[in-house]
Amino acid sequence: MRVRRRPRRLRAREQVLGRRAPGSGLLHRSPAGLKVAALAVFTAVILVVREPVVSAGGVVLVLLTALAVQVPLRMLLALLRRLWLLLLVLIVLQMLLNDPLTAVEVLSRILAALLAAQLLILTTEPVELVGVLRVLLTPLKIFGVRPGRAALAALIMLRSIPFLADQFHQAGQQAAARGLERSLRARTVPLLLGAVERARDTGRALSARGIDQV
């Protein structure tokens, strides 16, 4: 477990948005917009149809697709480990409240949708999604939405996530050092002030360069 040995700070930074499946299968090479559209259709179908066969078939379809495009199942299923508590609660609730067939449909529908999305996440660079956002917003120009500004905000968001994750982690350590590990406020205030400062610095630098869109 080499990853575990790394200093926490670095681990947080790397993990945040950086996990991509290695390789260059078909999904890696497909344009992000196409994958987003395919995922939208897939999700819409299983959300509307709501048949046990379709939802369970969806799970199988996602797993087969992963195998076909060389996305390691281990990385795909890592999502279940991160969401284990939620999934456990779901299973218990479904057993209590619904008949077995409905329970299977609900659970497989949720799994199929989440895992399908995970396929997109594991094969797409975050920056590509900013491009998709920009294209999607273009028709909204007539309502005064400016895609260039939204794209700039999205880029700033991507850059700020690792920074704020570090800040939050440090705030937690500082709180613990002062014996305040259970104080939500001791963790939140430094994070919020860090966010405001970061936004001010970024805004000033952009104003100085005369930039307000990309």
């Binding site: 880029l155 850059r159 610095d201 970024t202 000033r204 630098a205």
Partner: peptide
């Protein structure tokens, strides 16, 4: 009049 700030990370936005 170009401006360079003290926080290097906050001045860059593109990949």
């Amino acid at each position: 009049a170009g401006f360079v700030f003290s926080n290097p990370a906050a001045q860059l936005v593109m990949p």
